[in-house]
Design a binder for these strands. Structure first.
Lengths: 252, 252
DNA sequence: CTTGATTTAATAATCATACAAAATAACCAA
DNA sequence: TTGGTTATTTTGTATGATTATTAAATCAAG
């Protein structure tokens, strides 16, 4: 709505960050490789990494690239470097658990039911409150973009379209809180949960099952009824959790 | 409680991260300097930074140090570098708003009432839910550390002691949720709010005014009554918000 | 033996320089 | 205009040398 400049062919609408870590650049490889090893417990808190020269050789990169990656890991709270002593893995309590990369690594490595539960817990905490706030403070334009997303959900003809529209719906609700901290938290949690969403949606025979619940949230926000919006959103995320649990136990 | 090894004189108990940015390391200086400029709007989204060679000269550091800092800024979602085109400031929606440094810079630069409101909103969202979850899932050990923090609040003889104990109380409650995502979110929000907490506490004639409310939360958690815990915690954070508003308007 | 200051040595931190890779922009040909 | 090719700019990577930091070893005094 706000910032789509002219024709600009095929801007990748999702994939906002591309998560430097993903692939190419060498320093990105360093971040990914070491980050994963730390998260999965291959290198434990308190342990000392090999010194730069050796580690660089092991990872087949120059010290320059290694150090650039190291700074990023350090910014994520995973490691801590000191002259003369070396680079040490920090205690798990210091890790920036809400960092998008860290969450992604945990998704890769430990898709345990427990981790999904924690993500779902977070969602159940923020989304109902966000819906309530949206009902209270939304502008007309914000209501419109929620309605627009809802319409796209109605019109969706396959799972991909529906997933995109669903995400847009929730994002629009969060944006309507006028609190970018809330939006940021949601986007982080959501992109982690997205890994498991496919399962959840595929479980339901008809992927549009959740449409009525979304409709209730929309109505409550339209009528500016915070409590109703909170209740409807809570029902929705609880159902989503149930679906994901069913899906994961069906596989397990 | 858990990690105080032997006598070890004056370990700085708070200051868990030391926020690389604050210190004097050169690359840390780069991160701080450029990060601040971007957050405060001195360099706007879409704008292109000078090329590395020039920027390094301007900041009086080598290209190496500059780049190490740049990678960190990139990991925070603030900038994006591409060969041949340069390094561009990303749209504010891409910024990792929950990054501790970014929040800290916002505290430095825009201690507006609006920003404090957003922080307080976040707190009102997570803390009551966390208290409820704590009441449901806490272990006995976790209850003990909450009680211990409460006792410290009772025993506090000055504002500093009380502040420390207060923080420990909330941290213990959050930990009792057994959800490290929750803990991480809290610690980030909290350390940002701490900037304004001093004001809030100093406003109250007697800094122990909030003790009864903490007692209610503790009791509810002890008796495993989630709803009561939620209500008590909500009352507490609402009062805290009111205090901070009074403080900020008294100065404004 | 203990304590405190001093030296030593290992490691990260920084710098300077060179080269490689990527991608925009300019160019040229059809 | 269109399509491909080349040039050129900027980041990306590599290497080696130097400096700063600091834990640990050493030494000197009490």
């Amino acid at each position: 709505m706000t910032k789509r400049s002219a024709p600009s062919p095929r801007i990748p609408l999702r994939r906002p960050s591309a998560s430097i870590t993903s692939s190419r650049s060498l320093y990105g490889h360093v971040v990914h490789e070491l980050g994963r090893r730390i998260i999965e417990g291959g290198i434990k808190p308190g342990e000392l990494l090999p010194r730069e020269e050796l580690l660089a050789e092991e990872l087949r990169v120059s010290r320059t690239a290694l150090r650039e990656g190291m700074k990023v890991l350090s910014a994520k709270g995973l490691v801590e470097s000191r002259p003369k002593v070396g680079t040490r893995v920090r205690d798990a309590r210091a890790w920036h658990q809400l960092d998008a990369d860290i969450l992604a690594w945990r998704c890769e490595l430990m898709p345990t039911e427990d981790f999904v539960r924690k993500l779902a817990d977070m969602r159940e905490v923020i989304e109902p409150s966000a819906a309530a706030a949206a009902a209270k403070y939304r502008t007309y334009e914000q209501l419109q973009s929620i309605e627009q997303a809802y319409a796209a959900m109605e019109a969706a003809i396959d799972l991909d379209e529906w997933t995109d529209a669903d995400l847009a719906f929730h994002e629009a609700v969060l944006s309507a809180t006028n609190n970018e901290l809330m939006v940021s938290l949601f986007s982080v949690i959501e992109s982690a949960l997205a890994t498991f969403f496919a399962l959840s949606a595929r479980t339901a025979r008809n992927f549009k099952d959740a449409l009525p619940l979304h409709g209730e949230v929309l109505d409550a926000i339209r009528r500016s009824e915070p409590d109703a919006a909170r209740r409807a959103m809570l029902a929705m995320v609880e159902e989503s959790r149930t679906n994901m649990q069913k899906a994961s136990s069906a596989r397990g």
